[in-house]
Nucleic acid binder design. Structure first.
Lengths: 248, 248
DNA sequence: CGGGGGGTTGATCTCCTTCAATCAACGTGG
DNA sequence: CCACGTTGATTGAAGGAGATCAACCCCCCG
């Protein structure tokens, strides 16, 4: 609120930080021009709800910066996170009139929104968009299935290690760091959000994080800043094959 | 093996039982002709593995009849089912060289396979296929997210009730029965497979099924034939809103 | 008849939840 | 500047849901 200006985002797709990873990644410049006609930016503050489950969807769009969560809630209040939305991730389902999940900004968030109906019409005539959306959806499906293994079969300790390794890996890929190195990052989630992601209570999350710290698997500065001295060790704790991808 | 003939399937797409629900649902007749050139049928017996995770994928395809499962396995043997493949469901990911999951036939199975490379080439030039695949993938993603809630937050009893209601609902939709009625169906899964789907042990599955039977929520003939006298009651036990969709 | 696959049931154990107290950091208003 | 409430996190004690280990049943089939 104080520095409205620093949050402002260029309308020009060519300057967009997610230009080459979002739904629009494969669009040609003429296609981008048409997208620019139906797009607009929206900003949300940390903690704000972007969409309520069941609400009519006026738009679909991409996360430009910040982090949001996709969650489901039962009548008695139990909640399960079903998606973690990072920059370039897509929000909304073309063809569906109302939202199926709650979308909440966990940090300050900027979204690039497309008016829903024009976007749907454009998708039919622009294979580049549908192709990219298919690719992204298949990736999300893989991620969801990976999480099903975590939720269904891993212990609390393994769940925490899995979450940390996923965040570490994505952070390394965004910042172009070698995964072999000592990795360092800030946790974008509170203990409660971690619990909602992992199907645990926040107390169990806290205990397991402390345990991993005491045993030297991770190092902590404050509550949120994490260092991973040995990625292989963390992957072992996650129940994953520590050598996966490196020698295979 | 005994009656090879009864398993034989027509090559003609127009006679295909999944013609209007599979990836090919939106194809015009000229597109179907081109698909017929690259397609072939394969049969698998109950228990047979269709593809091993990590294997090179020679084909993608659709389940024509029978049921298959998609599972992930950890090194120590823990397994989690991540998908239940019913007639018309799609197997394989275009663009990916090797399989990410084990695919196992749980009943005798007939698949309509497309040679992978020609199919991928065709997808680029045939929006009808890509559009339908996107739609199906989005549906699968929704189903996966629904399961994440089940795996992460529901009790064993709720998990069983959820699984039963899902199977009942799909069975009703295939057989065009009203969900309000007394529903009856055969469980396509062993207790162990149910456990792998729900992130439980087979003993817990057995106990909870027995409990639901004793309390009259379900009725059993033998081990596999299930009757649901009151769908609303089952949905309550599943932790879902019993009125969902009916009055809403 | 023996054997194996699928299923049920019982006893015990354990990991995680639940309930609760405490703490540190932060902002706010008197 | 300090008292106060709030929010996020840690830690402890107790209890319970589901896992584990084990025995046994039923049915089909060679």
């Amino acid at each position: 609120m104080l520095n409205e200006k620093s949050l402002s985002v260029s309308q020009d797709c060519n300057e967009c930080p997610i230009r080459h990873r979002a739904v629009c990644a494969r669009c040609e410049s003429d296609e981008l021009e048409r997208l620019e006609e139906i797009k607009y930016y929206r900003k949300f503050e940390a903690g704000q709800t972007v969409i309520w489950s069941g609400d009519r969807m006026e738009f679909v769009g991409s996360v430009v910066s910040g982090i949001a969560t996709l969650t489901q809630t039962m009548e008695d209040g139990r909640t399960q996170m079903v998606g973690l939305l990072l920059p370039s991730d897509f929000v909304g389902r073309p063809g569906r009139p109302s939202a199926a999940y709650d979308v909440v900004a966990t940090t300050d968030l900027v979204m690039c929104c497309f008016r829903k109906t024009p976007f749907e019409e454009m998708m039919v005539r622009t294979p580049h968009i549908a192709q990219r959306l298919l690719e992204m959806t298949l990736d999300e499906l893989d991620a969801a299935r990976e999480w099903m293994l975590v939720l269904g079969r891993k212990t609390a300790r393994e769940k925490i290690a899995s979450l940390l390794s996923i965040i570490a890996r994505r952070d390394a890929s965004i910042n172009m760091r070698d995964v072999g190195d000592r990795l360092t990052f800030d946790l974008p989630l509170t203990r409660e959000a971690m619990a909602d992601y992992l199907g645990l209570t926040l107390e169990t999350v806290s205990r397991q994080v402390s345990a991993l710290r005491k045993e030297g698997v991770i190092e902590l500065e404050g509550k949120r800043h994490v260092t991973i001295p040995d990625m292989g060790r963390l992957l072992e704790e996650a129940g994953d094959d520590a050598d996966g991808g490196v020698f295979a």
